[in-house]
């Protein structure tokens, strides 16, 4: 824990050593009269990599949106660095699911990355050379620079996800909240994303990502939070991704293929 503390002196001071950057207390979310999440309490420390694991419809996306300040909780509160979160915060970047975007849109890969910078961009002029260079650098980090000028409809699922991540890097704050970054992507892309997560953590970025793939939960996270409409488990990877515990948490909805830790919920 000491290395994380030194990475995040500033936050450690504001939080009086509690090391909690993003804190959710007694969160509940209702869509109409349908409960999506109830009574979730969670404290995420600076530099942590947390995977949110749960079946489809378990409220993973909802929790991420609440943590990003995009969705006001019905009950409870979220605080970033000790300050209550009301609306999106520049330091907390939400990275949407790839599937939410319209990939037939008539734009290039570079245009798509620059969409991350659309707020506050010049009104009458095009994007500056500097903004474009930064976008190209972000694409380069994900091995996508040579695709910058092609139309997004020509990309594979894995390439689409890398474009989404390049856009996230462009305005990445201290916390990245990613919705299903590993879903529907090819093995090389999974490796690239995992490597990116390692690099980001090394520079002190906090990563929280939703997944229903236990192998990805185990590989890239230091901590696993099990979610099924409410918090059903929270702890280190080894303790959480245990077959008995998962069955208990999710009922029969866990499928193990091969070795434990490679299944999905």
């Amino acid at each position: 824990m000491t290395d994380i503390a030194t990475q995040d002196q500033e936050v450690a001071q504001t939080d009086r050593g509690r090391l909690s950057l993003l804190v959710a207390e007694h969160l509940s979310v209702h869509y109409g009269d349908r409960p999506a999440l109830s009574d979730v309490t969670l404290a995420i420390g600076a530099g942590e990599a947390v995977s949110l694991v749960g079946p489809n419809g378990a409220g993973k996306s909802t929790l991420l949106k609440v943590l990003a300040g995009m969705l006001p909780p019905s009950h409870g509160s979220v605080a970033y660095a000790g300050q209550p979160l009301r609306g999106p915060h520049p330091a907390v970047t939400y990275v949407p699911q790839r599937a939410g975007a319209d990939w037939t849109f008539p734009v290039s890969v570079l245009d798509t990355v620059l969409m991350g910078r659309s707020v506050g961009a010049p009104r009458w002029r095009p994007f500056s050379r500097r903004a474009k260079d930064r976008a190209l650098d972000a694409l380069d980090r994900l091995g996508m620079r040579r695709f910058a000028e092609i139309q997004i409809g020509a990309l594979s699922g894995g390439q689409q996800q890398r474009v989404v991540l390049a856009r996230a890097l462009l305005d990445a704050g201290r916390v990245l909240l990613l919705d299903e970054p590993f879903t529907g992507v090819d093995a090389p892309t999974q490796a690239i994303i995992a490597e990116l997560f390692r690099e980001l953590r090394a520079t002190g970025t906090t990563i929280v990502y939703a997944t229903h793939d236990l192998a990805q939960a185990a590989a890239s996270a230091s901590r696993v939070v099990l979610i099924n409409r409410t918090l059903v488990g929270d702890g280190p990877v080894g303790a959480m991704l245990d077959e008995r515990r998962l069955r208990e948490a999710f009922g029969g909805a866990v499928v193990f293929v091969g070795a434990p830790g490679s299944g999905s919920v």
Binding site: P88, Y94, F105, M115, G116, S118, W124
Partner: peptide, 23 residues
């Protein structure tokens, strides 16, 4: 449309992204 083109484009492309950007 010219003045708000970036916002209109992001909202059409990905509503969740637009929300995340504070639009």
């Amino acid at each position: 449309i010219l003045w708000f083109r970036r916002e209109l484009v992001v909202v059409a492309f990905d509503r969740t992204l637009a929300q995340a950007n504070g639009i």
